[in-house]
Design a protein around this nucleic acid. Structure first.
Length: 582
RNA sequence: GUCUUCGUAGCUCAGUAGGUAGAGCAAUUGACUCUUAAUCAAUGGGUCGGGGGUUCGAGCCCCCCCGAGGACACCA
């Protein structure tokens, strides 16, 4: 390839990337396809070998294995590479004179030794112990399965200590594939997350509940207090919203006669992001007919305990500094009871004024718009929530903040609602579902009032949902449990981004570069384009703004530096290029 | 949205007082037939996030912007 071509490539490619592309061409010349179409038969994985070979060394004498090269230790005519597959790593051992029995040593010197960290190869051979006692595959042949064109971050490890770890959060989240390759423990988190979901799914299926799917694109959004994402359907010419919850649809199914339905649902909320919030997140919602919220508390305990047992083999889970024990039964507090427990004050009998006074004492910023319910909520948030490390149910919430919840059977002003709090954060929200259609209409209307007063998160009135309730919904217990939050706890992850493969990020900005053709179109001869790139004049805009006299000097300098075999450029030519730019 | 910390080679990070941009790993070339953070020798590699300013001179000082982390706010 001509030198000049590399200067142009180098605008976007690093030296190492160019070298890898050259190797690809070199392999091609040798007749090696670096991206073969055929399947590669694999008959063993690294975990099986590492577990079973020490017990029985007659095993694995004819293996076919594939993986990604993670380390290379080349010692002249012998090489040790480490290959990584989905389950772990294993060392391979290659000998030049075995791979190349004849005179021609190209396959070893020109191909095997030229492989890069990141390349994926298949190998055939037998498993043995090296002199230093490491299980290895002594390979007889190898096949390139995929040439890697980008250098991986190099993470080294000795005696459990990791050197040069790849840990910049931005790069880890944006390029999760790299994170997964070089930080294998990241996989465990996501495997646990899937186990968590599977455990819950099995638990619910065994009880006979039906997993269902409901719309994500909704003409009305409901079931939670949140701002939605808005989108548009072209053919129908109508606004649709991405769901903020699926509650109202699942309850329609209870009306329809199912006695237990659940859905693992991606929900979308147009809010700020934080360690605990991602714009899209996963909830499992469950609705069971003829049950109430007390029954649901027992069910949640049972299900989450089962998850802990499945993932950790014990109910005790290390989370940050704390050991959290999910063993049933969990502590239960009424909301008033929790506040009294942590502040020593019983606020249940207070009027709004007294409560506002007390809220201020607790450190809540009180303003005139706050009603009794809001004050209780704030006092709880300020004084209790963060202190609730062990899983705890908080029940009996004020009616104003719970528009879909049944009124409490015996306590006026309260509802039959509970949340489970764990590690200082809510993990679920559940209630005896409101099935009185007249009361429900009134609650929606109250929400509309809030909306008119400027509350952007108030609920909208869903006429079809009310119609369904008017046909009659049996008494029902409902639950929403945050899968991301629960995963954070169960995997000891401090940030929601650690339990989402691809957390939301601002888009990366790509450096703007005009194409070679753009430059040719305004009359720049090919050889000079590389020189312009080298001068950081990457776009026509930059060329247009350039001072022609300075550019004449700079290009003269580049002509020498790049040893360009073309006549020097004239001022008039440069002026012509610039004049040609629109 | 506010406050705060950060952005230097492919990766991890140094960078003195404002004075020619450094190290380790990775890469290239060479040596090496049981290494394992392999070793040894040589070589190449930089828009110091971007733009502007102060200065004879800026990676460093000042301003604006972009991106990321954390805290708070909003929100469950």
């Amino acid at each position: 390839m001509p030198l000049i071509k590399y200067y142009i490539m180098a605008i976007e490619l690093s030296e190492q990337e160019i070298i890898r592309r050259q190797k690809l061409e070199e392999f091609n010349r040798l007749g090696i396809n670096s991206y073969p179409a055929e399947l590669y038969e694999v008959n063993v994985n690294s975990k099986e070998i590492n577990e079973n070979f020490p017990k029985d060394q007659s095993l694995y004498q004819n293996v076919s294995f594939a993986g990604r090269i993670m380390h290379q230790r080349i010692m002249g005519a012998v090489s040790f590479y480490e290959l990584q597959d989905a389950h772990g790593k294993i060392q391979i051992y290659a000998k030049r004179d075995e791979l190349c029995p004849g005179e021609d040593k190209t396959l070893y010197n020109g191909v095997f030794k030229k492989l890069d960290i990141g390349d994926i190869i298949g190998v055939k051979g037998f498993v043995f112990y090296t002199q230093t006692g490491e299980i290895s595959i002594h390979i007889k042949e190898f096949t390139i399965l995929c040439k890697s064109l980008r250098p991986l971050p190099i993470v080294k490890e000795k005696d459990g200590e990791v050197y040069d770890a790849f840990q910049d959060p931005e790069q880890r989240y944006r390029q999760r594939y790299v994170d997964l390759i070089v930080n294998p423990q990241v996989k465990d988190t996501f495997i646990k997350r899937t186990q968590l979901v599977n455990t819950m799914r099995n638990f619910l299926n065994e009880k006979g509940y039906l997993e269902v799917e409901t719309p994500i694109l909704q003409p009305l959004y409901g079931g939670a207090a949140a701002r939605p994402f808005k989108t548009h359907h072209n053919k129908l010419d109508m606004t649709l919203y991405l769901r903020i919850a699926n509650e109202l649809y699942l309850k329609r199914l209870i009306v329809g006669g199912f006695d237990g339905v659940y859905e693992f649902s991606k929900d979308f909320r147009n809010e700020g992001m934080s360690r605990f919030h991602n714009p899209e997140f996963t909830q499992m919602e469950l609705y069971v007919a003829y049950k109430d919220y007390e029954w649901m508390m027992n069910t949640v305990e049972e299900m989450v305990e089962a998850v802990a047992l499945k993932l950790h083999g014990t109910t005790q889970v290390q989370v940050g500094e704390n050991i959290i024990d999910f063993k049933r039964p969990w502590k239960r507090f009424t909301m008033y009871g929790a506040i009294e427990h942590f502040t020593g004050t019983d606020i249940s009998g207070m009027n709004e004024e007294e409560m506002a006074e007390f809220a201020k004492k607790c450190g809540v910023e009180v303003d005139a718009s706050m009603g009794r319910a809001k004050l209780i909520d704030e006092i709880f948030g300020e004084t209790c929530e963060a202190k609730l490390i062990q899983p705890t149910f908080i029940h009996d919430y004020p009616i104003e903040t719970s528009p879909l919840t049944k009124k409490h059977r015996s306590k006026p002003g309260l509802t039959e609602r509970f949340e489970a709090v764990c590690n200082g954060k809510e993990i679920c929200n559940a209630y005896s579902e409101l099935n009185d259609p007249i009361d429900q209409r009134k609650r929606f209307e109250d929400q509309l009032e809030l909306g008119k007063r400027g509350d952007e998160e108030s609920m909208v009135l869903d006429e079809d949902f009310l119609r369904a309730l008017e046909f009659g919904m049996p008494p029902t217990a409902g639950l929403g449990i945050g899968i991301d939050r629960l995963s954070m706890i169960m995997t000891n992850s401090p940030s929601i981004q650690d339990v989402l493969f691809f957390p939301q990020m601002r888009p990366e900005k790509k450096k703007e570069v005009s194409s070679e053709q753009d430059f040719i179109n305004v009359g720049v001869p090919q050889p000079w384009i590389a020189a312009l790139y080298k001068l950081n004049i990457n776009t026509l805009e930059l060329l247009k703004e350039a001072n022609p006299n300075k550019l004449l000097n700079d290009l003269g300098g580049m002509r020498k530096k790049l040893k360009m075999d073309v006549p020097a450029v004239q001022l008039q030519e440069i002026q012509n290029w610039i004049a040609n730019i629109k």
